[in-house]
Design a protein around this nucleic acid. Sequence first.
DNA 1: TCTGGGGTCCTAGGACCC
DNA 2: TCTGGGGTCCTAGGACCC
Length: 419
Amino acid sequence: MRPVALVDCNNFYVSCERLFNPALRGKPVVVLSSNDACIISRSNEAKALGIPMGAPVHEYQALIQKHNVLVYSANFTLYGDISARVMQTLTNISSDIEIYSVDEAFLLLPDPANLTQYGQFVRQTVQQHTGIPISIGIGATKTLAKIANYLAKKRAEYNGVCDLSNHAAIDTLLQTIPVSEIWGIGYQYAKKLARKGITTAYQFKQMDERWVKKNMTINGLKTLLELRGTACIELQGQVDKQSITVSRLFGRKVTTLKELQEGVASYISTAAEKLRKQDSVAYHIHLFIVFTYPHAPERFYRSTSIKLPIATAYTPDLIAAALQSLKELYRPGLIYKKAGVIVSDLVSTQSIQMHVQHVLPDLEKQSMIMHTIDTVNQKWGKNKLRCAAIGIEQSWRMKQLHKTSAFTTNWHELLTIKI
DNA sequence: TCTGGGGTCCTAGGACCC
DNA sequence: TCTGGGGTCCTAGGACCC
């Protein structure tokens, strides 16, 4: 069996911001979620100040000011582009790769004699080609590679690369790792395990398989076996998404149907664009809203489902269907906090074309229109061409007060260098 | 009101991940 | 006043059928 490496970008969003602003190096920096609500990425200096992951930023305002923490709004367009560059660099090194998330990838290694040395080579290559620092964990299974990565990040002596694939004293190491750090064991399972006195990865490794399967489903059992060195979770090639969600909090109180319609139309446009990007069409739209009553804090949730007669990724058709159903969801007098759409029951565009070509001679025309819009927007910026339904002013849009430019993806926002 | 066994399909909810 | 957004998978239970 070839060993698995998990490559993980360090403090990814902060590292992306630092690429274009070297003055941020060595300083405490955080990146906020959309709507500038929570802290979703922290530099090491910010971590050292005790700022936790996912914390609401307003709770840490005092600390942020006291220590001059630099605060940025999330710039997902930029991070997506940098991510693609990192992944391309890794793909050039090993074609056996699973891109697991925006900042992580699993790689099958060629089984060279010195894996640590090989890991250092990968690390230097990515640093040199993209400027992004990474850490690498190596193990016999994905779960063990994850643990190795945790150690590579946590303990300076590994210098960013930790190889557990042939480690003699692995059990001694596992005794030092909290059970909640195991990939696949979250808050609820950790709590359940603690009640049985299980707090370390080593203790979990010794557990009874039947109990684990019964109480933590088949996935828990896979985690257990992976921890023991038996690979149960295969490396996955690129797979199309089965559903696409677009949802946002509104930037201010929304009360009118018109504003709600603009929001939903806008989210549908984004979802449709993502559909077309993976060459899929959707049969199903799920629409949801989150609202409060005036003067009451509790949030309520309502949703509705729409089944389309013919799967499509044609924005105007999707918007029309969604707005029709939104009318049934809307009640005057409520305060709308958030709306979202989920498109699902996805199939490939080709499969649908074969079926309905005789019914819908316009299919090709629709596809050309969408392709043109996508091409223009990709080059000149999001929503340069758009459906009128999503509105012009969009004052309901959420706040992003500290956002940097789309340095690498928009001709209008290239980095300017003054000499 | 009580009464069987067995199967499929769908959905909601809960767990996890980043 | 202020608490993100986007995914996957599994299971229990209800509806329905024979």
